[in-house]
Amino acid sequence: MPNTRLFIAPLLVAILSACSTYVPPASKPTATLIMYMENETPTPRMRIGKAVAFDDSECGTPRTNHVISSAISMDDVDELPRKQIAAEQEFTFAMGASHVLWGGNSGCSVTATFTPKANQTYDARLYTRGNSQRCEMIIVDQDNHEVPSTRPEYSCMPGFNGINKNGRGWYQAVRVVVVPLIK
């Protein structure tokens, strides 16, 4: 059986790079966002973590998004590079994890909106559970206190099979056909 990861990984890299990179507004106050992911999904599976900012709490109008950070890894615990984000205004973002499996791909994402304070540091922690069937995100301040946030019913970050409920996983089967060589 051929290694299906060889077929799927380039597609995932293309998806990760399809959006523009997030840059906070110039000469406006900023805060620091640290993004942490913990995956309960069994290894060995290729994991892709991604954080995306949206123009507003309705996922942008029209639907616009900007990649804050992304990583391809096989670790159970990952930390995406820390980033500067806009402060003193609502900030909407989604964190998601995708997993490349032998029979398909799975993933889960959560979208949240909160108002970061200038010059503060925040941790966004995404916990993926049950083979990507569900996930949750907790946002804490630099004193490790949970930060109030709002969550829409559906995540702004689509999976391979479209838009999913916030914190609810998705699965998309991948069919690989092996054709024997004729001599």
Rank of each mutant, 00 (worst) to 15 (best):
A94Y: 02
L80P: 02
A97C: 01
Q84P: 03
A71C: 09
V77P: 14
M95C: 09
N65L: 07
S70T: 12
A71V: 09
D78Y: 08
F93M: 01
D75P: 08
E88D: 15
G96C: 09
F93R: 00
E79N: 11
D76E: 10
S70G: 05
S98E: 07
Q89S: 14
A94E: 00
F93N: 00
E88A: 15
I85K: 01
T64I: 11
P62R: 08
H66P: 03
D78M: 13
P81H: 03
R63D: 03
Q84C: 05
A86I: 05
R82W: 08
D75V: 04
E79G: 10
T61H: 10
I68T: 03
T92L: 08
D75R: 12
L80W: 06
A87F: 10
I72R: 04
E88F: 11
A71S: 09
K83V: 14
R82L: 06
Q89P: 03
E90F: 09
R63G: 04
T61G: 07
I68G: 01
Q89H: 09
S70Q: 11
Q89I: 11
T92A: 09
Q89E: 15
P62M: 05
N65A: 09
G96Y: 05
P62F: 03
V77D: 09
G96R: 01
T64F: 03
I85S: 05
D76L: 03
A87T: 08
S69H: 07
A97M: 01
A71R: 13
S69K: 02
G60F: 12
Q84I: 03
V77I: 15
I85V: 15
E79D: 12
A71T: 08
E90H: 12
V77T: 15
H66Y: 09
T64P: 02
R82A: 15
V67L: 08
E79L: 09
D75Y: 01
M95E: 12
N65K: 07
T61Y: 10
A94D: 00
I68S: 02
R82V: 03
D78E: 09
L80V: 00
I68V: 00
S70K: 09
A71N: 08
R63W: 12
A94P: 04
Q89N: 12
V67R: 11
M74F: 10
D75Q: 12
V67T: 15
D76V: 05
A94Q: 01
S70N: 12
P81A: 07
A94I: 02
Q89K: 14
A97H: 02
T61C: 05
I72E: 00
V77Y: 10
T92G: 08
E88G: 09
S69L: 06
T64K: 11
M95A: 02
E79C: 11
Q84N: 14
T61E: 10
S69M: 08
A97V: 03
S73D: 11
A94H: 07
S73V: 00
D78R: 13
Q84A: 13
S73Q: 00
E79M: 13
M74S: 13
D76G: 06
A94G: 01
A87C: 11
E79I: 10
V77M: 10
E90S: 15
S98L: 14
A86S: 13
A87K: 14
S69N: 07
